[in-house]
Each structure stands twice: as structure tokens, then as C-alpha cells.
Nucleic acid binder design. Structure first.
Lengths: 221, 221
DNA sequence: GCTCTTTACTTTGGATCCAAAACAACCCTC
DNA sequence: GAGGGTTGTTTTGGATCCAAAGTAAAGAGC
């Protein structure tokens, strides 16, 4: 289990680092040697990564690294949007427990503090990524069924689809500050809607929020 | 590959047939013997089924059959609804090719023919399942990116979530006829919306359509 | 010279073997 | 009698071996 789990995550990293190019055929022995294990855990990992969508069957034999188009990226983001929107709507409809309310308030507060000084520094990127992930996870988790969370988790395996994969341009922290500021506002609006039991509004806000990493840059630049 | 693929689908069947109870621990050797193969393909299959969500890790060792609550079922149906809704909206927004238009028209026509006689016979169930699957697949496929289709496919691995898993009560074909009649109408409305480029309407119709197997019975009874 | 066939090599799939980890039962000690 | 440690059994994970399928290359026939 130790090694097997590691092989999966190591392979994920190798792929997203571009060591294995999209469309490139990927062999069991090759990977096994590179990671210093036998073929067995690699074979197991291939099956997992196939299901995750990072690998695909290459013809009649073996696997290849899946390649993603612009449209794929956009779709993956939209998929996350509708799924998180669904989670938010369900949550608003069933009402939020005071414990969850406190947790969301906590991450909202964290966001305010991070943005309070009016600009971004390098270290803030990690901080935002952290609070953003917690915020989204809290909502999805509270939606009542692991099924939605699983669907999101599987979608998030596509490296560009996860909520915390918001592309941050370290060269343009000024612009990124405005983007995160907007994201923070959206977080606060979502919480507002959740508290009021406004299901449709919470859903739409979450759906729009998913786009922030995708097409906000040009507007907020 | 032959055997490996088979092991996955055979196991899926054994699980959904209830031979392995939800929550029950499932051992590699046990399954291997039952299917007459060695442990290797079973181990591979377990990883696949874990990702599909039918199995889950049982503590520190092995797997167990996942159990699903009422809420899980409802959520899985809703997940399919929002995803197919997303596909339909994208499709409406980008416009449908004449080839797809013809295909959808074909399945619509099939549905009309099946329901034309005014009642259901046993054999119609299979026929409807067939055309229904084709109809849904055509829309999802045409939505432009495999990402949405993959997300739906993964969700459909939950046996009760797939569009063609509409529960048909063979004892009450009268009632089922009304249900399928309603489903047919919804199909036609979706096509209408798609042709008109009415994205939001297409989306909402698909989302509602997902519920038909779930909560229509009591109303149409 | 081109194509088809056969052969050799590469790579994956399945089975078996071995080691390590987990679980359970038992015994010993306090 | 209870708790903890130890031992033994079960089960999984990793490595290796063998067979089968696929691909590529080379040779023969036209």
C-alpha cells in the first residue's frame, strides 16, 4: 500500500510536470525502472490513473498520457462549477449547521486578513490556496452525500480543474490581488446565500465562481 | 486484457446482484477462486472498482463493498442531472449539427413508435432502455469534450445512477407507460430547446428529466 | 521494386512465490 | 481476572516468471 499509493502520486506528479508528454506512450517497465519498483505496483497505478482520466488506453496495448484541449479545460472547470453549485444548493436547501457556519466564517475571516494589507506577497499565494481549498471542501463535505464529493474529487484529478489550481501569475501580483479580492467577495456572497437558504442563488454564485481562474484575468488586468 | 476487463464487469455484476453485500469485506483470494482466475487480475479490478466508487478501502487492509443511502441515490441522480444539463446547455449554445439533429430525431421517432400503441409490453422495456441510452449518449457525446462524458460515465458506474437504470415495475406496466410517456415528452422538449439554441431551457429540462426515475412514480400512479 | 508473409523481438497480462503487515488468539505476568 | 506482550495465521503487497498478443523488421515471392 505504501509504495502503491506513492507510485500513483509520483506518476501524477511526473505527468503534470510534463516529464511524460501528452499523447506519449507510457510503458510499464520504463516507469518501473524510473521509480525503482517492480512492474506490479506500476500496473496497479495505471488502472487508477486510467480511471482518474490522466491515462487512456493506447490502441490495443498499453496506455498513453491523455492530452487536453482548451475546450477540455473549460469543460472541466464548468463541471466543477455545476457540481459545487449542486452542493451549495443542497446545502442552502437543507440549512447549514452552526458548526459549519462557524467554519465558513473562519475561512472568510482568513481571506479578509490575507487581503487586508491591500497587496499580495509571494507567501500569500500558498495561504490563499490553503483557505480556498478548505472553504470549498467544507461546503462539498456538508452537502450531505459523499457522491457529490467523489464526483468533484474525480474531476479535480485533472490537474487544471481543481479549485486550488487557480493560476497565479507571480509576475503580476497586482492583478492577482484584484482576482483574489473578487474571489473573496464571491466566497462571502456564497456564505450569505447559504445562510439565507437561497439555494438557486448559492448555486449560481458557485457556478460563476468556478470561472474565476479561467476568464477573469483579462477583465481585472 | 480480456480477462482483466471481464473481471471488472463480472465483479460489478456480482456486487449489484447483491452477492456481495454492502459493507461486506471482499477478499482477493475469495473473488479469484469464484471467478476462476488468479489474484492478479482481481487486484487490478479492485483498483478500478475503487475509483468507480463501488468499493472502498476497509480500514488498513483490503476493500469492502460500499453501501449507499437513500440520500446517496438521490445525489447521484442529481449529479447526473446537472452534468447532462451542462452538456445540453453547451450543445444548445454551440448549435447542433444536422447530423446530430437527425440522430436525435431518429430516437425521438423510435420513442413515439414504441408508445404509439398506448400500452407497454414486457419487450418494450428493453427497447426503451436502448433508445433512452442512445438519446442521452448522443447529447453528451456532442457536447464537445470528453471531460463531461467521463464525469457522467463515472457517475453512472453507481448502478442506480445511470439514465437507463430507470426502475421499471413490470407489475405495473400501466403506470410505467405514463412514466415513459412523460420521459418521451421531456426528450422532445429537450430537442426543441436544443434546436432553438435555448441553453438555459435545455439545461433545466435535462436536470428535471433526471428525476423521472426517482420521484415521478407517486404522481403518475 | 513492392507487397505479403513469416519471424523475431518487445511489451503486456496472468500466475506464482516470497515477504511484510495486520489481525487474532493465546499465554504469561502482574 | 485483566492487561499486555508474543506468537501464529491470514491476507495483502511486491517481485519474478511464463505465456500470449502485438509490433516491427527482414526476407521471399511476384
Amino acid at each position: 500500500m505504501t509504495s502503491s499509493r506513492n507510485v500513483v502520486s509520483q506518476l501524477r506528479k511526473l505527468i503534470s510536470d510534463g516529464l511524460y508528454q501528452p499523447g506519449e506512450r507510457i510503458g510499464e517497465v520504463q516507469v518501473a525502472e524510473q521509480l525503482g519498483v517492480s512492474r506490479t505496483p506500476v500496473r496497479l497505478a495505471f488502472r487508477t490513473l486510467e480511471q482518474e482520466g490522466l491515462l487512456e488506453r493506447a490502441g490495443k496495448r498499453g496506455f498513453q498520457v491523455r492530452e487536453f484541449t482548451e475546450t477540455d479545460v473549460r469543460c472541466a472547470v464548468e463541471v466543477r462549477g455545476v457540481l459545487e453549485g449542486l452542493a451549495a444548493r443542497r446545502l442552502a436547501e437543507q440549512g447549514i449547521a452552526s458548526e459549519l457556519d462557524a467554519e465558513l466564517a473562519f475561512w472568510i475571516q482568513k481571506g479578509r486578513e490575507l487581503l487586508a494589507k491591500g497587496y499580495l506577497v509571494e507567501a500569500d499565494i500558498e495561504g490563499w490556496s490553503e483557505l480556498n481549498r478548505h472553504f470549498h471542501e467544507a461546503i462539498v463535505k456538508a452537502a450531505g452525500s459523499p457522491v457529490i464529493g467523489d464526483a468533484i474529487a474525480r474531476n479535480n484529478h485533472l490537474p487544471f480543474a481543481a479549485a486550488d489550481s487557480i493560476i497565479i501569475d507571480r509576475q503580476a501580483l497586482e492583478q492577482e490581488y484584484r482576482k483574489l479580492h473578487q474571489a473573496q467577495l464571491q466566497h462571502e456572497l456564497v456564505v450569505q446565500a447559504l445562510r439565507q437558504g437561497e439555494g438557486a442563488r448559492a448555486e449560481m454564485l458557485m457556478r460563476e465562481h468556478a470561472f474565476i481562474g479561467l476568464r477573469y484575468a483579462e477583465l481585472l488586468g
